[in-house]
Amino acid sequence: MKLLKNFLPFLIGIPILWGIQLISPPHIAIILVNVGVNIILAVSLNVVNGFTGQFSIGHAGFMAAGAYTTAKITLALQDTLLPGLSPWLSTQTIFLMALVAGMLLSGTMGLLVGMPSLRLRGDYLAIVTLGFNEIIRVFIENIRWLGGATGLSGVPPYTTLVWVGLGAIATISMARRLVSSTHGRALLAIREDEIAAEAMGVNTTKYKIRAFVISSAFAGLGGGLLGHYILLVTPKTFTFIKSMEVVGMVVLGGMGSISGSIISATLLTVLLEGLRGLDQYRMVMYALLLVILMLTRPTGLFGTHEIWDVLSRYFPKRKAVQKA
């Protein structure tokens, strides 16, 4: 029964997403996929920047790690048929396994980056992740096996709206379940006061690294999905500009609010899709957004509140009523 409850969002999600995919025209589908990927990125970054109170600005670097791993695997196994499965099921299984491999690799990267920098105070993580983001680009551009500066082309078009939607559901339920778990409480304690958390017996470094690894792994998922939608994986897709976009979404939505990240990711993606013509002003807007938000409303739209908490106040469950 509990197992069923855990998978309920996915079971409900698949038919709905499939329906949306059937009825939405191509240009809407592109926006929806972008929204989904950005939700994955924003919510996963929120685990580090919001719940743990650290500040990573290199999410795109981990996306790159995930995207390249996934694309390399699917490119290699493009014509392979898994025994005993129909062709469609076989490609989907390969894609799923490739995504998981991408997550594992970007998570490992997160471990390597996080271990030295998270032992110290938050500022170091920011500059190390910024550096990592640039360095991974330098590496990819110089490794011919990864396609160099031109990147990998001909990536198979596996990503669909259903895949992205399921990825987003997975990320959101991961984040929700994480916050309400023992681990999540430890992370929140670190955000509120690192010294006090340590005094209460929280192994701060360990928890910070765990949160960072989880966050990077989901960034890798986002990267893998994005790469198989735009069918091209190049180092240019994953510059610090992309990282900044995600940071902007998290800060606008409220650091520490999952629903805030979802809403601001949706808003900003749709809004910026409308402002395509003003591409040059896009990044200036993000930068201004950060500065003005910090000066006037550092909590962002939602602060640390969640929509579902607010809703449950107005629509209490029966159990809660009985208790009162």
Partner: peptide, 13 residues
């Protein structure tokens, strides 16, 4: 964290 984010914002601005 607020000051750090502002610094990043100014840099990108």
């Amino acid at each position: 964290l607020t000051a750090l984010i502002t610094a990043i914002g100014i840099s990108f601005l």
